[in-house]
Amino acid sequence: MLGECRILLSNISLQQTSTDRWVWRLDASNGYTVSGVYHLLTSQLVQTTNAVSDLIWHKHVPLKVSVLVWRLLWSRFLTEDNLFARGVIPHGNRHCVAGCGDVETIQHLFISCPFFLQLCGVIFDPGWGYLQLNLFE
């Protein structure tokens, strides 16, 4: 690792002609412009989310479900880690509401938390689904 790092550094020579400065990677000559960034963000958004958003904002999907999934994808829940990142709660108070001891993130609540996993087990229990199917037939 040190070897690879040194290879990176071997091409660099410092000069005393001027001081270091920040450069806007997307447009090194003109620098940062609002229009350039607007273009970047709007074009990326279309590329990465078009397929997904067509699914989410589908007319057959109930609005409350669309909103929930949209917030999931963009990490817009008031989970403890988000509240901490936004300075709402102090450090050291970021644990899962279920009391499992892990940090409360969206990933944790919806995928890995043992408590809510059990809850999913109840909701998606095959026996329960079978019962519902029979009721509607």
């Binding site: 410092l14 000069q15 001027s18 001081t19 270091d20 920040w22 450069v23 806007w24 997307l26 963000l41």
Partner: peptide, 15 residues
């Protein structure tokens, strides 16, 4: 996106 697109152009390396 902002942080990803800003780089430091090193000349004397002091800062």
């Amino acid at each position: 996106w902002f942080k990803e697109n800003v780089v430091r152009k090193v000349v004397n390396g002091a800062n």
